[in-house]
Design a protein around this nucleic acid. Structure first.
Lengths: 146, 146
DNA sequence: GGCATATAGTTGTTTATGCAACTACTCGAA
DNA sequence: TTCGAGTAGTTGCATAAACAACTATATGCC
């Protein structure tokens, strides 16, 4: 029963996600200082589109672990910013594919650098093997609960 | 240069905190099913008050890593729910101490059980030594960025 | 004492979130 | 063929978040 060995008194920092909140906040700050006028949440949607342009909104829900209304509104705001545009799928008219605009594509290089900077700031003093274990644990937790 | 060995392509799940989002969502669900009509964020404030009743709002900011307006409104809502009450400090009239009501105290036992259940669900299949390493990494990340 | 500075808390604004309820479209089976 | 179930997306509502700007109180230095 490995779980019983876990100190319950420290469950709190897990549950509140202080570390990921801190990372998100720092990334937001770095984006702003780097001149990128987007939110971290918008960046997280763009991130998946840079890897795979034309994803449906449902795909973006799965990729970002947000519900459909959240993605609807994030895409709304990204469209207002002229960074993406919705295109109705011809095969299935229920589906909106979300495509990057030229302006949206242009943000990739600059903001990925800022994201890498943020991550390096976060991971100062953490050995690579422990990072791997941490990622592994977080992945299992996610799979257990998703 | 340990950080350079970190695969940048996987930075995303770190930054979005999918694991902690999943935990929070599950805790919210468990609270609801257990009949506790509070949000996870409200629970996280109560959690610190159960450990240390009478904290100031600023103390709660530090403990929960939220800014002052967030705590103002969380305490507003907890006060509406009759779970806490603000008491102006006599020594320093700028300070509100936040005290649990009887009703607020009553929630501890039941919801801590639900929180432990949630954590056990999250950590199925994760060996205790890896949990410790994960906590250690998240603590360093938090300290690097806070 | 009195002013500058710092700290505690509140309010306004924008963005994001989750859940529930809704519309629109697709697909399979009677 | 059509009707019922399922899927994609939107809208309404309540809560929460960050940042900026504000008030009120405390403190330290002259």
């Amino acid at each position: 029963m490995p779980n019983n060995q876990f100190k319950k008194g420290e469950l709190y920092s897990f549950m509140t996600g202080k570390a990921s909140t801190a990372i998100a906040r720092r990334l937001q700050k770095n984006l702003k200082q780097g001149g990128a006028e987007i939110t971290v949440e918008q960046w997280s949607v763009l991130y998946h589109l840079w890897k795979n342009d034309g994803l449906s909104q449902q795909d973006l829900c799965n990729a970002t672990f947000r519900d459909k209304p959240s993605i609807t509104r994030l895409v709304d705001n990204l469209e207002k910013l002229k960074l993406v545009k919705r295109v109705a799928s011809k095969n299935d008219r229920r589906i909106n594919q979300v495509f990057l605009t030229e302006q949206g594509k242009k943000l990739e290089e600059e903001t990925m650098l800022l994201a890498n900077t943020t991550l390096n700031e976060a991971l100062i003093g953490v050995p690579a093997d422990k990072i791997d274990i941490c990622k592994e644990v977080l992945q299992i937790v996610y799979d257990n609960l998703k």
